[in-house]
Amino acid sequence: MADDAATDTAVDEAPEVATDEEREALLSVFSAELGEAVVAHEIKPGLGLWIRVATEAWPAAAEVAAKAADCGWFDFLSAIDWLPSPYGRYEDSSLDVPFPPPMPDRSAAVPGYTGGDTRLQVLASAARMGTSLRVLLKADVPDDDPVVGTWIRTFAGAAWHERETAEMFGIRFGGNADLRNMYLPTEFEGHPLRKEFPLLARVVKPWPGIVDVEPMPGGGDDEDEATEGGEES
């Protein structure tokens, strides 16, 4: 068994260095094509490449991904709301807590990899067919007027994803006229994946399964304790 494990790690490490170079090369393509519009980037060796482009360069980034970078396989397009949820994780939700709770301050929105200046960010991915290489693209969405350019001129498949994102986040895509609701009835109000959208059932009734993440009675110190396999509970 020890032999197997040793060869495993050897196999794992060899391509890790190689793919890292591949991702560097991929990044340099974007930098060369988009120039200043590549605002920030992050490479996790062997795991992923994140690039944040300027808002105006969002459609151009798709074009670069499909043509120059040879990542022509459309993966997905979505968004992230970086504001913390005013409801937390609904741990202490009950009717006693004032509803709706005060919205967290705008400055509480802390973006993840590659940073960002706005609350909402669009996130998309494209891949190179036949490889494990894919590029994750991000762009800021202006706070006051959430509009970014559309990807449908490059990737036909983005149409549905933009409809979904528009419905879930209230982000509009300039150039994509068909932003009907993808999932919810037309009468539905609100954008569910925005953090301020409440899950009303949880506000009324706290999650009974919350005990799952409480320390076991008499289990000693909670977090640092590690359990061996098969001995959970």
Binding site: Y183, L184, P192, F197, L199, L200, A201, R202, W207
Partner: peptide, 13 residues
């Protein structure tokens, strides 16, 4: 009763 989606915004309970 809604099952695992008891707190969902789109599921009838």
């Amino acid at each position: 009763c809604g099952g695992p989606y008891w707190d969902s915004y789109s599921v009838t309970k």
